[in-house]
Design a protein around this nucleic acid. Structure first.
Lengths: 253, 253
DNA sequence: CAATCTTTGTGCACGCGTTCACAAAGGCAT
DNA sequence: ATGCCTTTGTGAACGCGTGCACAAAGATTG
């Protein structure tokens, strides 16, 4: 789930392990909830339970940030909220552009979780001229032709791709060319980006397939019968021409 | 990510490493694209490139499934599609229920990627009585009161939660009670489930925060200036030192 | 049928992440 | 102050995942 193609051997994020970075938002959420309940301090055990992780792991994670706890007492909630926010870069404003305003793009535009922490939907972009001007979540949709200008003018460095798979790579290239250096990709495509650009992928279909795997295993533990069926031995076109088959090309043959 | 709260020590998926399982859908997608182009065979190198992974890793992944390749030639595309599909449990039909038909729920209901492989949206469920009967993506929304019956009658074992965070745990409990054993959770909440129930989490906010972290780091590499602002101080009894690992210069005294 | 060439399958080493277990540190009561 | 009790911070061991590098396997050609 990290960068699509570029290797990520040196992403040794300034001493903070990638796995730890991925958990910081989790801690932050739990801490924010505590903060809203005016809880002054919290122990690693309590916070770990709230975040759904092991307490030892949590303490080790925090140790990478520094010694922000008090032995015998725990962690100061407000102070920790600030420190994690700062570490994640949430104390500043991040203008985000969403490209591809279909069902999913619109859903994200309306998603409250964005605005909650530093993120601001600065622009909505779509290739359909008919949508231009139409407000979605209170923000007028703009046309792809102006992508470059929109990104530049708003200082957008984080782009969200919610286009059909066929358009994803092209949109990605344009975003990168316009100055975007972080991309959140919802299209089921492997994006290739130049060095220095981060790509994170969210793939709903993959998540379901992983669940199906485990589900099958659970069900199959009792009845291990299950015939083998008739595996297609060779070029046996499974006559499937599903709607999602609009994947344009990919790599050289 | 894995299960929310339950430990996952025994998820030793029948010999197939979890990391491998997570990549199988990726391979499957690339293989399907090749299949539609009627490519008969593919080498580990080509397929790895298309899937965005290392070729050695791909070969090792496949080795867990068995020896399906031919040395000197490569892998038979159709055969491999079938084998992976079978391993992932996609040769059977998986009725899925989506709970919480807001923007995101509606987007998922319309998402083509679901129906494409074995998954079928069997039911849409929402707590708003006003929505009952309204068709979304051609499927009438049903009310939460009937959740138990709906799940049972349709034989749903995979549930998708797209409710507001406050309702997530409750919905989760009801789904599990009704017989659901795999949950895909989009709500920003840590779900606690009994043993034997799998939970996968998709958290848009977390993904963005991780990107923000790297983005900040990239930007901060040049200019290490950046004022610190004023961290909210609290519970700092004995004037502690400033163990700030990196650049902070503001500490109590 | 033998030689050559391509590509798989895998043994091995390395590094990251997780977990345990405990000493050090601080608060609190006496 | 002194001693006890709680909780942090971390050294060390362990296990998993990754990538290298190569021998084995099969196709192909002469």
């Amino acid at each position: 789930m990290a960068t699509g193609r570029t290797h990520r051997p040196a992403t040794r994020s300034r001493g903070i392990p990638e796995a730890t970075v991925a958990r910081l938002p989790l801690y932050l959420r739990a801490l924010t909830a505590l903060s809203e309940r005016s809880v002054p301090t919290v122990s690693s055990e309590e916070l770990a339970t709230a975040a759904g992780v092991n307490s030892a792991k949590l303490r080790k994670d925090f140790s990478y940030l520094g010694s922000y706890g008090t032995r015998g007492v725990g962690y100061d909630v407000e102070y920790l909220v600030y420190q994690i926010s700062r570490e994640l870069g949430l104390t500043q404003d991040w203008p985000v552009a969403i490209v591809g305003i279909g069902n999913l793009g619109a859903a994200l535009a309306n998603y409250g979780g964005f605005a909650s922490r530093g993120f601001r939907v600065a622009a909505l972009i779509d290739a359909d001229p008919a949508m231009a001007g139409t407000p979605v979540a209170g923000i007028p949709v703009q046309h792809t032709d102006d992508l470059d200008r929109i990104i530049s003018e708003n200082g957008v460095s984080i782009g969200v791709i919610t286009t059909p798979p066929g358009a994803a790579q092209q949109v990605c290239d344009r975003l990168v060319a316009a100055g975007v250096t972080s991309i959140l990709n919802f299209a089921p495509t492997v994006l290739s980006v130049p060095e220095g650009v981060d790509v994170r992928k969210v793939d709903l279909s993959i998540e379901l397939q992983i669940l199906a795997f485990h589900e099958q295993r659970k069900a199959g533990e009792d009845a291990t019968a299950e015939d083998e069926g008739a595996p297609p031995m060779r070029a046996t076109p499974t006559g499937r021409k599903g709607p999602d088959g609009d994947m344009p090309a990919v790599m050289p043959a």
